[in-house]
Write a protein that binds this DNA or RNA. Structure first.
Lengths: 205, 205
DNA sequence: TGTACATCAGTGAACGCGCGTTCACTGATGTAC
DNA sequence: TGTACATCAGTGAACGCGCGTTCACTGATGTAC
C-alpha cells in the first residue's frame, strides 16, 4: 500500500475514483457528492476540503479522463508511423478501447454536460485530445489529391461521430436492447467502408 | 381551443407535453414529475390519475417520440421510391431532422435509459422505426453484388451510429464547445463518402 | 529525547429544499328519472 | 325542465428521504525549541 499520509492519505484521488465508479453505475445525473464521500469513507463535508463542490468534482473526473484519452490517442497516432493509414485506424480503435476500459471517465467527459469553458485545465486536456485526432486525419488526408480532399477537421468529425454513436448505441448494455454486432466489428467495418469512399483504400477487398 | 372537457380537459397529454419540454431543457435525469405537474397547472398527486409514476411518464414521452419518428422514417423511405438510393438518403436526413425538431422526444428515446422491455407499446413503436431503417438499408444493398454485400443490419447500424454521433456531438449547444460544421452538412458528406465506399455512388463526384 | 504549540483534514450537526408517493377528501361534471 | 344521485379528476396535507452546502469544532499530525 502506498504512503498512507495525513489522516486519510489521498482523499482527493479517492473521491475522484469513487465518483468515477458512481458515474459509470448511475449516470452523470444520478451521481451524488454525498454518495461519493460515503464510498470514500468520509463525511460529505470533507469533500469541500478538496473541491469547490459537486460540479468541480465531476470536472476533475472528466479532466483526468481527457488526459488518459489524450495519452492513448497520441500513443495510437504515434506520429503517423508506420503509415498514415495505420496510425489513423489505430486512433479509431483507441477511441473505442478507451470507452470500454474507462466508462466512468467517458461518461464524465461526453455525457455529463460538464462546462469546458469554466475550467482551463479541463479545456486544455480536451483540446490536446482533439488535436491528436485531427492530426491523424490531416496526415492521412495528405494522401488524397488536393482537389478532392475534404477538410481534415470534417474527416475527423465523421470518424468521431461514428465512434461515439457506436459507443452510445451499441457498446452499452441497455435493458430491452440487443446488440446485433460487436461494437469493435461495427467500427472496423464502418471506418473501412468510409476510407474506401475517400479513395484511401482500394475499392475492392 | 379544442374541447376543454372534464376539469382540465386533456391533462394526460398536457403532462406529456410538459415533460417533453422539461426533458429537453434539463436532461432526462434532471426531469421531475413534480415540475411537470406544476407546468401543467396541477398538483403532483394528479399525475397518478394518468400514469403509474415518473418512469411511466417518461416511457409515454418516449413512445410518442418513436411513433413520430417511425412515421417520419416511413414517409422518408416511401417504399423505396423514387430510387433505393434516394429513399435511403432521405431516411438519413429525416433522422437528423427529427432530432432537431423533437429534441425532447429524442432525449427521452435515446438518452433517458428508459426500459423498452418493460413496456410493450414502447417496444412496438421502437421496433417499427428500426424496421423501416433496416428496410431502407436492405433495399439499397440489393444494388450491390451479392459477394460484397454487407448485412443490411450492419449497414443500417453504421448510418444510425453516425447520425446519432453527429446529433450528440455537434447538434447540441454545449457550453465551451464550438461546432466546426453544420450537422446537416456533416451527415450529408459523411453518408456520401460511406456510400461511395460501398460502391453505391460513383467513385468521383 | 521531551514538551508546547500550530496546523488543518475531517467531523457531526444543522439548514432549507424538493423529490416521489399515499391518502382521505371535495366538488365539478354527467346521468337517470 | 328540474332534482337527486353517482362518478371520478384533481386537491391538499402529510410522509420519509437524500440532497448540497455551511459552520464551529476536534483531534491527529508535524514542527520548533
Amino acid at each position: 500500500m502506498a504512503k498512507q499520509g495525513y489522516h486519510h492519505g489521498n482523499l482527493r484521488q479517492a473521491l475522484v475514483d469513487a465518483s468515477l465508479r458512481l458515474i459509470e453505475e448511475k449516470g452523470p445525473q444520478g451521481f451524488t457528492l454525498s454518495e461519493a464521500a460515503k464510498e470514500a469513507g468520509v463525511t460529505p463535508a470533507a469533500v469541500y476540503r478538496h473541491f469547490q463542490g459537486r460540479e468541480d468534482l465531476i470536472a476533475e473526473a472528466a479532466r483526468q479522463g481527457f488526459e488518459i484519452f489524450g495519452d492513448l490517442m497520441e500513443h495510437a497516432y504515434n506520429g503517423g508511423k508506420p503509415s498514415a493509414l495505420a496510425a489513423f485506424e489505430a486512433t479509431g480503435r483507441a477511441y473505442l478501447s478507451f470507452a470500454r476500459k474507462f466508462p466512468g471517465h467517458y461518461v464524465a467527459m461526453f455525457e455529463s454536460g460538464v462546462n469546458l469553458a469554466g475550467n482551463p485545465d479541463l479545456a486544455r486536456a480536451a483540446g490536446r485530445a482533439r488535436a491528436t485526432q485531427e492530426a491523424a486525419a490531416a496526415t492521412l488526408s495528405e494522401h488524397l489529391p488536393p482537389d478532392r480532399r475534404p477538410p481534415a477537421a470534417m474527416f475527423a468529425a465523421h470518424v468521431q461521430a461514428m465512434s461515439h454513436g457506436i459507443v452510445e448505441l451499441f457498446a452499452r448494455a441497455r435493458p430491452g436492447t440487443r446488440a446485433p454486432f460487436a461494437p469493435e466489428d461495427l467500427l472496423e467495418t464502418g471506418i473501412g467502408i468510409y476510407l474506401r469512399g475517400l479513395g484511401l483504400l482500394p475499392p475492392d477487398r
